[in-house]
Design a protein around this nucleic acid. Structure first.
Lengths: 341, 341
DNA sequence: TTAATTTGCGCAAACGTTTGCATAACTATT
DNA sequence: AATAGTTATGCAAACGTTTGCGCAAATTAA
């Protein structure tokens, strides 16, 4: 039972056929008669033939593998995306190898090298926070490997991108607050070097403007990473504000949860006195009390869409690589934190 | 700029050396002079040489890749483990390709086939819920591919396993409740077909016994998947119980959170009237109010440990595959939900 | 029957590495 | 000056597939 894996040649010898015939038989090539296909398949099963994909990849220059680069795997959003990627890839005969950039540009570049060495058929990436310049991606793209970005996408070249409409989602969320009677609305935003947070802020402002509400700059708070702790700090600022807020739109769910908790502790009724909306539909949003109104950002679908687009580009013959941007529709999930019925 | 990747031969021709010399120079082989190593490296950089790992894998029968099979990627515990795996693997020159079994035995078997085809150097797996029989794993193991299980591990053969001591952790958690003055303690448990939940129940009982507290079977509730919703149902049962509980040990954090919320809504003070302990240290445990006392199950470290063990076995010459079980130490994280100080 | 077409299969090359062995060029030892 | 030892490099085979092309046999058309 030691390391002598059966090969095509072994099968060939065994059946007095050529290796080519065996090969073709096993992939159901039309030029082979049904009869011999049966024979070959049977013998293959019998001898426990294990096809050597590496040899095939080597020969065909195709690995049926897609590389994925995410900042971190243990961020729920990314794990959802990866889940969508794996699911779609698996169902279409591709495997997925994952890398964490840890938001390090250096590591991102290393990974790109590895992916080229390993000849992945395509790659899906969410940019690291350090990455301002995408030359390393341009290079791999030029070398013929299709690329799809999601969520944090490059702005300096037009690649394939899967995004949600952050502007519109934020607009919707804010408008929802307004329709629920809020007139003095705050916004907790993320780093303005990241486009998605910039867009959410713009959407927020646009909704206010549209409904003729003043934009109170003092109610727009900026955080670095939208952490729970930063959220707490923001909420406390709101408490001290001379303006009495009656609504907050938070750029993610963590900060929204902070706001809920801080305000509750201050004995301010949610949603009666202040309505809260988050962003991302994290699991906690349906657990926190009151349950949090939020935006479903379609992480799983994002993974699927990215993979679908990537595989299409991999399998398309014409090698003039077009670039496409797909914008996924989000959805406002209304829960108690904003429902003044 | 089209598909003509530079090869060793190209470099060889360019430098009037043989391909073997180039190959050896690039891997820093001792038999090559420093002088030529310099030359070769320089030329390689100059021409943008990209080593073809597939060819190398083909030749060496080693892919520097480890396969990972998890039930689902988007479960936080697994995403943490995977994160640990990727981190350790990356730092040791291995790549990680992931698969989701979706708890399907059929899919698990398919994946095993793929992993053999692709000649991964080793595999890390958390068994799917359907998997009672590990013959497919035994087979791949026999074929010389090292295997490490984590969390949900097989009982019917002795493989490499990374686990935590569920019994001891549960014992500790329960004892903590007792030391905080609880005398009537409930336990919300998971499916008893899963060993880890069986062990947690046993640990719970053992602690009670040790401290001469009666084991009230009616306070031990079983759920199927330890979901938040099941937790709510359990908590409601507790409310209706004739026995007045003053503590609950939950087999995971989701159910613990349910209990907190249901009891709070019933205006029962936590931890004064009832103390709660969860299991896993999910992010929500430090957000829910009161913050949840729980067990740190060391998911990330589990991934690291699994990978470390796996790589050791891959790189060990002697091919008599030993099997090892590593038990990670857990840690009780005391927070407000159980602190009656 | 012969010619033309189709069907089924084999030959052999190629993919880019790595590696055991041979060999050439030195250096050191006698 | 001859021998042994060392150092640096080259040769060639091998890894297991896939695939273009060729060819024989079987089938169909004439």
């Amino acid at each position: 039972m030691k390391n002598t894996r059966i090969t095509l040649k072994d099968l060939a010898k065994e059946l007095n056929l050529s290796a080519s015939t065996i090969s073709r038989a096993l992939v159901n090539h039309p030029a082979i008669s049904e009869a011999t296909k049966k024979i070959v398949q049977k013998k293959a099963d019998e001898l426990g033939f294990i096809p050597n994909s590496i040899a095939a990849s080597f020969r065909m220059k195709r690995t049926q593998t897609i590389g994925v680069i995410v900042p971190r795997i243990d961020i729920h959003f990314h794990s959802l995306v990866i889940s969508g990627i794996e699911e779609f890839a698996y169902n279409n005969g591709y495997n997925v190898t994952i890398f964490q950039s840890k938001d390090s540009l250096k590591r991102e570049k290393e990974i790109i090298k590895i992916l080229q060495n390993k000849m992945v058929d395509g790659v899906i990436v969410c940019l690291g926070i350090e990455t301002q310049n995408c030359d390393h991606f341009k290079k791999i793209n030029k070398s013929g490997i299709p690329l799809v970005f999601y969520d944090r996408v490059p702005t300096d070249f037009d690649a394939n991108k899967i995004v949600i409409n952050d502007f519109e989602s934020a607009y919707l969320a804010t408008e929802h607050l307004i329709k629920n009677g809020c007139t003095t609305i705050g916004h907790i935003s993320g780093s303005q070097t990241t486009n998605i947070f910039k867009a959410r802020l713009e959407g927020f402002k646009a909704a206010l403007k549209k409904h003729h509400l003043p934009i109170e700059e003092s109610l727009i708070l900026f955080t670095k990473n939208l952490t729970y702790e930063e959220g707490v700090a923001c909420a406390e600022k709101y408490l001290e504000s001379p303006l009495k807020l009656d609504g907050v739109f938070c750029a993610n769910d963590y900060t929204a949860v902070s706001v809920i908790q801080v305000f509750r502790k201050a004995e301010i009724k949610i949603p009666e006195e202040i309505a809260i909306v988050g962003f991302s539909n994290y699991p906690i949003s349906r657990i926190i009390e009151p349950h949090l109104t939020t935006i479903n950002d379609r992480a799983f679908q994002m993974g699927e869409a990215a993979t679908k687009l990537l595989i299409r580009q991999i399998e398309e013959k014409d090698d003039d690589i077009k670039s496409e941007t797909i914008t996924l529709k989000t959805e406002l999930i209304v829960r108690e934190s904003s429902s003044r019925n």
